[in-house]
Simulated scan of single mutants.
Amino acid sequence: MLIELHKLYQLAGTPGVRAISAEIQKRDDLSATMNRDLASQILSGRRWPTVKQLDSLVRVLANQAVVDLEEDVESLRFVALWTAAEQPFSNDPIEIYSADPVDRAFEEASATGRIFPIVELAMRRPPHAIIEMLDKLSGRGWGKFATDLLEELAGCLEVSRVPALASLLPPSFDAWAQSDASTFLEAFARRRSVGDVCELTDLLMRAGAKTHAGYIVKVVRDERDLFDTAKLFVVLHKGGYGWSVGGTWNLDDVWPNSLEDVLGLIAEFRALGCPEAVLTLLTRYGSGHSASHRWNLYQLLLEREMQDVAEMMAQSLMNAVSEREVAEFVSISASAGEGELASRVIKGVVSVRSRNSSSHFIQFLPAELVAIANEDRKRA
C-alpha cells in the first residue's frame, strides 16, 4: 500500500505536506482532516493511517495528479490495499509491552505496582547498566521504585558484585540527606547474614572504601545483636584495619553503656579467639563518660570472678587510657577503700609513661595521692 501511495504522490507532483494539509482542510467533502505532521508520518511509513485518513489523502493527491484519475476509483483501490494489509494482523495478539527489555520491565512493574520485574532484569546486568536503570527511574519520577530496587539488590546481589555497584552510586552532598550508596549498603547490613556482612566489609576495606565500610559498621553496631557486632569487630581487627572504620567507633557514645552488654561483648570476643579485642574494648570503654563507668565495670568483673579481665583493665589504665580518666579512676578507687589498687595503678602509670605524661597525670590527682605519685616517680 505504501508503494502505491508513493506512486500516487509522485503523480501529484510531490506537493509539500503543508500544502496537502491545507487542501484537506479546505474541502468539506472529506471524511478526515490531517495536519502536516500526520501527513508526513503517513507518507514516510512511520504511521499507519486510519481508513478515513487514507481516503482523504488519496482523494487530494488524485485530484492533483498530472493524469486524469477518478477520486472514487482511487479511494476504493486504496481502501482495498489497506484492508489487505490489515488482514494478516487482525488475529494477532495485541502487544502491550515494549520490545526493549528495560522499558518492558518498567512497564510490567508499573502495571502491577511491584518492583520485581526490574529487580530480575538488574540482577543480570553489569553495574553501569544498573546505574542507567536507576537514572531512568529517577527521570520518570519513580523515586520509590529506585529506592526499592537498591534495597532489593542489597538483599540478593552476590557479595562480590556489591563493591563495584556501590562505587558508582552517587554520594550525597547534603550531610542530612540519605545517599544512594548509604541506602544500598545500610540495607545490605540489615538484611544479609553476618558472614556476608563481614565478607563485604573486608572487600570494601581492601579497596580503600572506608566510608562505604562505615555505613555497614554503623548499622551492625546500632541495630544488630552483640554476636554480629563482635564478629565484625574481630574481622576488622584481624584484617589490620583498626577500630575507627567510618569514623564511628572512636566516638564517645559508641560502646554500650549497659554493663551486661559489655560483658556479653567480652564473652563473644573471647569465644572468637581474639583477646586483643577485649583489651581494646576495655581501653575505650567509658571514654567521654563519668569515671564511674570504668569503676563499675571493674567491680562487676571481680564479682563475676573474671580476675584476668579485671587485670587486663588495670593494665589498660596504666598504659593507654588518657591521664585525666586514669586519675579519676584512681580517685574513685581510693575513696572506695581500694588503696592498694589505686597505688598499683599510680605506680604503673609513672613507671611506664613518659615524664610529661606522668606529670600531666599527677596534676589531676587529689592532694592526698599526689605525694604517693611523686614518690613512685622518683623511684622509677
Rank of each mutant, 00 (worst) to 15 (best):
V254M: 07
I115W: 06
G246D: 04
L165C: 09
A19C: 02
M133H: 00
R294P: 00
W142S: 13
K26Y: 00
Y241A: 07
I216V: 15
L301A: 04
T283I: 01
L369Y: 02
E325S: 12
F78N: 05
V330T: 11
E71M: 15
I42S: 02
V370Q: 13
Q315G: 07
F329A: 15
T280L: 03
T211R: 15
R206E: 11
G16P: 01
P93D: 15
L134K: 10
A105N: 08
D196A: 14
K231A: 11
D222F: 04
T211M: 04
I42N: 01
I115S: 02
S31P: 12
G348Q: 08
W295T: 11
K238P: 00
T211P: 01
S351N: 08
L226S: 05
R27G: 01
W295R: 13
E152V: 02
S40M: 07
E338S: 12
S44V: 03
E328Q: 14
V350F: 06
A327Y: 09
A207N: 12
A207Q: 13
K144E: 11
A334N: 06
E4M: 10
L251H: 05
S138D: 13
S110D: 03
Y215I: 00
L81W: 13
A380Q: 02
S331Y: 07
V217P: 06
L185C: 09
D180W: 15
R294H: 04
P127V: 04
G143N: 10
D103I: 11
L369K: 02
D222C: 08
G339H: 12
S322A: 14
T201Q: 06
L150H: 10
D180N: 14
P49F: 03
V51G: 07
L341C: 05
M313Y: 06
Y298I: 06
H237N: 04
L281I: 08
S287R: 14
R344G: 08
I42T: 01
T83C: 08
F145V: 09
S333D: 03
L297S: 06
T183C: 15
E86A: 15
L302N: 09
P275N: 10
Q299P: 03
F269Y: 15
K210W: 14
G240A: 08
S172A: 13
A85D: 15
V79F: 03
D174Q: 09
N319E: 13
E132N: 10
E186A: 07
A367S: 14
V162W: 07
K7H: 14
Q363P: 00
V220T: 12
P366M: 05
Q299N: 05
A181Q: 09
N356S: 14
R353A: 01
L272N: 04
G143A: 08
K231F: 01
L168Y: 09
L272V: 10
E151G: 03
V262Y: 11
S98R: 12
S290A: 13
L43W: 09
R125E: 13
L297A: 11
S287W: 10
A122E: 03
G141M: 03
S343E: 13
R304L: 07
E328W: 10
T280D: 03
E108N: 04
L150G: 01
P49L: 05
A327C: 06
C198F: 04
D252W: 15
T248Q: 12
C198I: 04
V262D: 08
S357H: 12
C274M: 07
L8T: 13
A62W: 03
A334S: 14
G13L: 10
M1H: 10
S358L: 05
D55M: 12
